[in-house]
Design a protein around this nucleic acid. Structure first.
Length: 271
DNA sequence: AAAAGGACCTGGTGGC
DNA sequence: TGCCACCAGGTCCTTT
């Protein structure tokens, strides 16, 4: 489900509700997420205070007194803040209940997400240690992409979706950014010029920023932590528009699987 | 080291 | 209406 703007939307929605709150209990109804949810969290989390809520890539990091809770939403995960007695829905797998009566509820039909606990320095965690830069940071720019892409044969679309290169760019925003940058998704990463990379990096930043501002993209069921959809869908230029007309030149928008993911592009505008 | 493909899941949709 | 194939916002892991 969520790419960076959606995770950021969730983070902004929940942070102020949780920071400073004391965990009262944890209810794990389903441990079979991407990785087993350890029953250790039932023991260790109660009485801890949530000090801060942060995001790194598409991971949400809940800093507690003794360590971090690390949550990824996978393809279909969502988090909501609810009164702890709220009636359960299907796939409500985990509740973190707070002493003020609120509950952070994790729902995930496909169970590709994860909920982990770590007491080590969180950025040294295996899942975070080898991630590329955040796309909205200054270290992510055209020169950086150009340098990393040298001699690489991989398609540019897969390259910008590679979390070792840059985090947070999923299938929707990769399609959108390449269309706006007028670069063919199939071109080898090593054959993109420095100027094109500068344009692309700026467009990735801009696209993500606008999407965050609009509360993310709701395709079927993404909602923020209060249950509201995102409105970036109305802004999509190319994603999901196979067979429709390119807004720039009127050509039929093509589709093709690249790296097992559906790709939408205009064969005239994108070279 | 880089590239490609499989794996993990449920639910919705469209075709017959 | 029912059944089936295929598709979906991610990304780790194994194999080549």
């Amino acid at each position: 489900m969520p790419e960076l703007p959606e995770v950021e939307t969730i983070k902004r929605g929940i942070a102020s509700h949780l920071e400073g709150q004391i965990i009262k209990s944890v209810l794990v109804r389903e441990t079979r997420l991407r990785w087993q949810v350890t029953d250790k969290i039932n023991i260790i989390l109660p009485k801890q205070t949530v000090i801060s809520v942060k995001r790194r890539a598409k991971y949400l990091l809940f800093e507690c007194d003794k360590g971090h809770i690390l949550i990824h939403l996978g393809m279909s995960g969502n988090l909501q803040i609810l009164p702890s007695n709220t009636e359960l829905k299907k796939h409500d797998h985990v509740d973190i209940i707070f002493s003020n009566g609120q509950c952070l509820r994790y729902n995930d039909p496909r169970r590709f997400g994860c909920i982990l606990w770590t007491e080590a320095p969180v950025f040294e965690h295996k899942l975070l240690a080898n991630l590329g830069p955040e796309p909205l940071e200054k270290t992510f720019n055209g020169k950086y992409l150009y340098d990393r892409a040298k001699k690489r044969q991989v398609a540019i679309k897969n390259f910008i979706m590679d979390s070792k290169i840059v985090v947070g760019v999923g299938n929707i925003y990769a399609n959108e950014a390449l269309f706006t940058a007028r670069i063919s998704p199939e071109r080898a990463a090593g054959k993109v010029s420095l100027n094109e990379y500068k344009r692309l990096a700026d467009i990735i930043k801009k696209t993500l920023q606008v999407a965050i501002k609009m509360g993310g993209t709701t395709l079927r069921n993404f909602t923020d932590s209060a249950g509201n959809p995102g409105y970036f869908k109305q802004t999509l230029q190319i994603y999901g528009k196979g067979g429709e007309i390119c807004s720039q030149c009127g050509t039929i928008i093509h589709t093709k699987k690249i790296g097992q993911r559906m790709t939408y592009y205009c064969p005239i505008c994108q070279r």
